[in-house]
Design a binder for these strands. Structure first.
Length: 942
RNA sequence: GCCGGAGUGGCGAAAUGGUAUACGCAAUAGACUCAAAAUCUAUCGAUCGCAAGGUCAUGUGGGUUCAAGUCCCACCUCCGGCACCA
């Protein structure tokens, strides 16, 4: 065996050496022209914060670095670029605090980040580095905005902004904590301000549908879909009438149709609903507290003051707070007006409540408490009628039995499916036993109970009053009117209670409410001529019947695009007294940020730019008269909405990117980023891309072919790392002390890539030991081809498969463990055949690029390991190898056998039965059956 | 409240329905050393047993199956996201 004398593993030397060599040779440079197939891998470009690189950055960057390096070895021309998303609030706030210009801060921070990233050995193509704050970059961000403006996708609208009453400045959502300003602690309010908006909602349909074209992780796709929130429904008008009379003792009066038509009518309220099929159950309307119709009705609303007070209170709170506040529903009835349910002409009350939002749908809903949880909560609180209109369809006859003895039920051969703590049985009754079962109930049910069962034809109810009197009713489309009658008479459950609708009573009983109070589709009841029909079949008919109109709505709202801030791209528009809003001519782009000393927002709510008179005052591009520049800037999202396009042609001065180059590289093949960006950022950039596609400026419908997400790296205490908590792990010190390779291995080994994981400094040692062990292997490399050994050969081959598959599936932790197992075997071996070790090094190279490159060179290789070919898994053909077969008796492991592969079942059975252990456990028992799982297991059932 | 994800040793975790706890960390004992560190060897879910071995364990309760961490039903807890989205 040839022994190679080696130095100790010196990560500092090795890592510096190869980083320098790689940079010099440019082996990670992407080629715009190449015979190879392209592969574009992308990470979310970092925000260069003053805190420096986070260990979380390293985890996600390493992941895509592994993919990129593997693709290169598989023969792809890979683009793995990097840049800086450098506009933003933290930098601006830091500038305000220190007086240092954001440009200087950004330069300093990006320099630090660049150095840190380089020290980790990522295979970025640094020649394409971009920076969103570079005028050469934001020129094109502004240009894209102008295209949006030209095409009617940008407009101005009054929107509420957060306003600090003491600082007198506008605040970002993030700066408002519990209605108080983050910095001064003073109270905040909402203020109306003209804002630039982008009509992303015009693309809602495409953004939703085209998710079918991309390969995003299922949960990411789901979140996008939920955010866009497409729902198909109908808009239906509810006529308003002046209140006729109020008689508090007559609860049913409001639901009774009115025959007199003497009151005057008002313009109707339009509601949006996805469940028009439930309209017969709509027992009240709810408007958003800021619904404009309220103002029109001002004179007719008797409790106007109360309404205004409620609306004002609601406005103060953010939607999030309204949500967090939780279960207790609040609202105010509009006294003096009523609405008419167009389905049954019943008069119903109208409320305002904060659970209805003005900007979704039409800002008004019809409430169907029987089939919507929130409506039900509200109805219960305000004591409003709950009228079920949909019966759950049942395929079997099911019954919930109460007040009947268990033995009695079983005596007629009915099986009890489930018993609950609160004393009822769930049973399933064969249809031919139904009559027998009813008889049993009548006889055995204790007084004061009632039982119900569902059948193919409807619901059957048996009630036993206190005096033993039995009332029965069958409920389906024909007999439905019985329910009203019964509801009025069945009142001896709780003698003190007002006679009420039986459904209210059902609603109070959790397991009955499952049958009638639910949000599923089913058979209609209480619905006039639609009774007995399947709700899903007749929705459209019902919409027609009530004069409604089918509509598709989206949750998605238009994008508030302006910020009253300094550190962002100026919006390239001029406001002229004569010509109105005039776009800055493209030849005058970029509109550069002026150099100022004061970055503080103004106390008028305008951007700091508004104070720079000689910048604001310009000639109108149209009429050449004096005009004012737009002083708002763009949000952070702007620059990050198209950066992947700029990477393709980062230095182009004529266009944002050359068409041919776009054609070469698009779409991004694999985009990995944080879960926190899968709604806003991902959606915004898809929106811009789709717009550019429609303008024929990019060649693909979608920007990203595949999107995956990583988990957070948390501090050792399980919390998010933050300077204020003092729990930040600095990657630099680990790179310095243990090396970038160790850090990379550890970050990928620490746990499942998609999960949030706490840092554990102790565990890093394991990764370092692993690399040292790899290092030591080189002492016993043998060139002897005859030295090959079958077992090691198989293990190497299996590791190739495991690691290849795991990298692709982002199961990096198990890939590392597979390589550890192989290295442990290498460690035990007397000598390691060179080819095995080389194969292993290639597998490890994407993960630990420096140490593998060094060892590769020491093995005598001239070309970089990162340019070698990815190993292929060899399908095994050997049938003679031995495997372990598990022997179970009654599913318990009792023995194992070493056998050759693919042994016949019969032979296996007879061999197994001869085993002493098996004989011991089987004894004289009769063997019922024997199960064989090929090459794995045999189970003898006795 | 809604949506998504997850509950397995002391810890991070692994497991196409087929030997639960791979791999790593920590811990304990031993070797080497004057000593320590490093390294190496061994042990390492609980419990009963001198041992062979048995029994019980994957959040809880049911179910399907020869066989369940994995599939189904109900529930509990934790984490993440949110715009109570009709």
């Amino acid at each position: 065996m040839k022994q190679t004398k080696i130095n100790n593993y010196d990560h500092k030397k090795i890592e510096a050496k190869w980083q320098k060599k790689w940079e010099k040779s440019g082996i990670y440079k992407a080629l715009d022209k190449s015979k190879k197939s392209k592969f574009y891998s992308l990470i979310e470009f970092p925000y260069p914060s003053g805190d420096g690189l986070h260990v979380g950055h390293i985890r996600s960057n390493t992941a895509m670095d592994i993919i990129s390096r593997k693709r290169r070895m598989e023969g792809f021309n890979v683009l793995y670029p990097i840049g800086w998303d450098a506009f933003g609030l933290p930098t601006e706030n830091y500038a305000i605090k220190t007086g240092i210009h954001p440009i200087k801060i950004t330069k300093k921070n990006t320099d630090i980040f660049r150095k840190q990233l380089k020290s980790c050995g990522f295979s970025f193509d640094w020649y394409r580095e971009v920076n969103t704050t570079d005028p050469g970059y934001y020129k094109w961000t502004q240009w894209i905005f102008l295209q949006l403006l030209k095409n009617g996708l940008a407009y101005k609208k009054k929107m509420p902004i957060n306003w600090c009453l003491s600082c007198k400045i506008g605040l970002a959502n993030e700066e408002v904590i519990d209605n108080h300003c983050e910095r001064c602690g003073g109270e905040t309010d909402k203020r109306e301000k003209e804002q630039w908006m982008l009509s992303i909602t015009k693309y809602a349909d495409k953004l939703d549908k085209d998710l079918d074209l991309v390969d995003y992780l299922p949960n990411i796709k789901l979140q996008q879909r939920n955010w866009i929130g497409r729902s198909e429904g109908a808009e239906i008008n509810f006529r308003l009438v002046a209140e006729r009379f109020t008689r508090s003792s007559d609860l049913l009066a409001e639901a009774r149709p009115d025959t007199r038509k003497s009151f005057s009518d008002y313009p109707p309220v339009t509601v949006f609903t996805t469940r028009a099929d439930t309209i017969f159950g709509a027992t009240y309307l709810v408007l958003a507290p800021d619904h404009p119709t309220l103002l029109d009705l001002r004179d007719k609303i008797k409790n106007w003051d109360e309404v205004v007070a409620y609306a004002t209170e609601t406005k103060k709170r953010s939607e999030l707070e309204r949500t967090v506040e939780g279960k207790e529903k609040t609202g105010i009835e509009l006294k003096g007006i009523k609405a008419i349910n167009p389905a049954n002409q019943k008069e119903i009350p109208i409320f305002i409540a904060d659970y209805v939002l003005f900007h979704y749908g039409t800002g008004a809903i019809m409430a169907v408490p029987a089939h919507d949880k929130r409506d039900k909560d509200f109805a219960e609180k305000f004591n409003l009628p709950i009228i079920p209109v949909i019966l759950k369809e049942s395929k079997k006859s099911m019954s919930y039995v109460m007040g009947v003895d268990e033995a009695a039920i079983e005596s007629i051969g009915v099986e009890i499916l489930r018993k609950t703590d609160d004393g009822y049985f769930e049973v399933e009754i064969p249809y031919d036993q139904l009559d027998k079962y009813k008889e049993l109930i009548r006889k055995n049910m204790e007084p004061h109970f009632w039982n119900e069962f569902s059948t193919r034809d409807g619901f059957y109810f048996i009630f036993k009053h206190k005096d033993g009197r039995i009332e029965e009713m069958f409920l389906n489309e024909k007999t439905n009117d019985l329910i009203d009658r019964y509801g009025a008479t069945f009142n001896d459950k709780e003698p003190g209670k007002e006679p009420g609708n039986v459904y209210s009573w059902i609603a109070e009983n959790s397991f009955y409410s499952k049958l009638l109070i639910h949000s599923d589709q089913g058979v209609l009841i209480n619905s006039g001529k639609f009774n007995g029909k399947l709700s899903s079949d007749v929705v459209n008919e019902i919409v027609q019947f009530v004069g409604g109109q089918k509509k598709t709505k989206y949750k998605l709202r238009d994008w508030v695009f302006s910020r009253q801030r300094y550190w962002g791209e100026p919006i390239p528009v001029v406001s002229c007294a004569i010509c109105g809003l005039v776009p800055v001519p493209e030849k005058d782009l970029p509109v550069k940020l002026p150099n100022v000393k004061n970055y503080k927002p103004t106390d008028t709510g305008e951007s700091p730019l508004a104070m720079i008179e000689n910048w604001v005052k310009v000639r109108c591009p149209k009429c050449k008269g004096w005009a004012k520049r737009e002083t708002d800037t763009m949000p952070n999202w702007a620059g990050s909405s198209w950066y992947y396009l700029r990477y393709i042609d980062a230095k182009n001065k004529k266009v944002f990117a050359d068409k041919n180059k776009l054609k070469t590289w698009l779409p991004v093949d694999w985009y990995n980023g944080g879960m926190e960006h899968v709604t806003l950022h991902l959606l915004y950039s898809r929106f811009w891309h789709k717009f550019l596609f429609d303008q024929k400026l990019v060649p693909t419908k979608e920007p990203y072919k595949k999107r995956t997400a990583h988990g957070f790296v948390l501090a050792p205490d399980g919390q998010k790392m933050s300077k204020s908590k003092g729990n930040v792990i600095n990657p630099d010190s680990i790179v310095k002390l243990l090396g970038a390779d160790t850090l990379r291995v550890y970050e990928m080994f620490m746990g499942p890539f998609a999960d949030a994981i706490s840092w554990n400094t102790d565990s890093v040692a394991g990764s370092r030991r692993f690399i040292e062990r790899v290092w030591r292997c080189i002492e016993k490399i043998s060139d002897d081809k005859n030295n090959k050994n079958d077992e090691l050969d198989r293990l190497v081959n299996n590791t190739v498969k495991k690691v290849s598959d795991d990298y692709e599936g982002m199961k990096f932790n198990t890939a590392v463990s597979a390589m550890m197992i192989l290295v442990n075997e290498f460690d035990k071996a007397v000598s390691i055949p060179k080819s095995y070790f080389e194969t292993f090094l290639i597998l490890l190279a994407p993960l630990a690029p420096h140490v593998t490159e060094e060892l590769w060179e020491r093995l005598g290789n001239k070309k970089s390991i990162h340019l070698s070919a990815w190993p292929k898994y060899k399908l095994e053909h050997k049938n003679n190898s031995k495997i372990k077969i598990v022997i179970q008796v009654n599913s318990k492991v009792r023995d194992t056998m070493e056998l050759t592969m693919n042994i016949s079942d019969d032979k296996l059975k007879s061999l197994a039965l001869q085993r002493e252990n098996v004989r011991k456990w089987v004894g004289s028992s009769k063997i019922k059956k024997i199960f064989v799982v090929k090459n794995r297991l045999i189970n003898i059932v006795i």
